[in-house]
C-alpha cells in the first residue's frame, strides 16, 4: 500500500512528497507491522521504530560495519538496506543472538574473555559479522579471520583481541559452539 501525503506544495520540484508504505518486518522471530516513510533504512527502522538500539550507526554509508545484521542468515549492512527491502525476510540483530536461557552466545562470551572491544560501539556489528564468518567457513586461519572481518572498523583498535575471540569460538565448534 502506498500513500502520498502533503502532495500539494507550492514548489513541488524542490519538495518531494513523503511516500509512506506499510511494511511487516520479522525481527528476531517476531513480526512487526510499521507504516514507514519509504526512505527509512532497515537500520533506522530497527533503532527508531522498534527500539532495537543494539545495532549501531557508525557512518550510514556502508563503510564501517557497525550496523551489521543478518538477513535470512547472511550478514548485511542495515544502513544500506531499505526497511521495505527486508519485508518477508528474517532479520536477526544482536538482541536476538543470546541463548533462550539468557546465556550469552559463545561468540559473545569469547569477546568478553579476550577483551575484543573497548568502547563497545562497534561490538554488536563485530559479533554479527563474527557469527556469519563461521557460517561462511571463513575462520580457518588468523589471516582469513582478519581478511573477512575487515569490513568492521574498530577505532579503539581491538583487532588482535577480536581475532583471538573468533579463533577460540571457532575452535570450540563454530556457530554451534558452546563454550
Amino acid at each position: 500500500m502506498t500513500r502520498v501525503t502533503n502532495a500539494s506544495r507550492r514548489d513541488t520540484d524542490d519538495l518531494p512528497a513523503v511516500i509512506e508504505r506499510v511494511v511487516t518486518l520479522t525481527v528476531n522471530g517476531r513480526p512487526h507491522t510499521l507504516r514507514l516513510d519509504t526512505r527509512v533504512t532497515l537500520l533506522d527502522a530497527l533503532r527508531d521504530r522498534l527500539g532495537l538500539t543494539g545495532t549501531k550507526k557508525g557512518c550510514d554509508q556502508g563503510a564501517c560495519g557497525a550496523c551489521t545484521v543478518h538477513l535470512d542468515g547472511r550478514r548485511v549492512l542495515a544502513c544500506l538496506t531499505l526497511a521495505a527491502q527486508a519485508e518477508g525476510r528474517d532479520v536477526t540483530t544482536i538482541e536476538g543472538v543470546s541463548g533462550t536461557d539468557g546465556h550469552p552466545h559463545p561468540v559473545q562470551q569469547a569477546f568478553m574473555e579476550h577483551d575484543g572491544f573497548q568502547c563497545g560501539f562497534c561490538t554488536p556489528g563485530q559479533i554479527m559479522s563474527a557469527m556469519a564468518l563461521m557460517a561462511e567457513g571463513r575462520t580457518g586461519s588468523d589471516e582469513e579471520i582478519r581478511e573477512f572481518m575487515s569490513g568492521n572498523l574498530c577505532r579503539c583498535g581491538a583487532y588482535p583481541n577480536i581475532v583471538a575471540a573468533i579463533r577460540e569460538a571457532a575452535a570450540r565448534g563454530g556457530h554451534d559452539a558452546r563454550l
Binding site: 538500539t53 549501531k56 538482541e95
Partner: peptide, 21 residues
C-alpha cells in the same frame, strides 16, 4: 578480570548517546 560492562556491550544493551530517545 573481564570488563564489568562487558555483558552490556556484547548484547547491545549498553546505551550510547545516540540510543536515547
Amino acid at each position: 578480570v573481564n570488563r564489568v560492562d562487558g555483558p552490556r556491550k556484547v548484547t547491545g544493551t549498553a546505551p550510547y548517546p545516540m540510543d536515547f530517545s
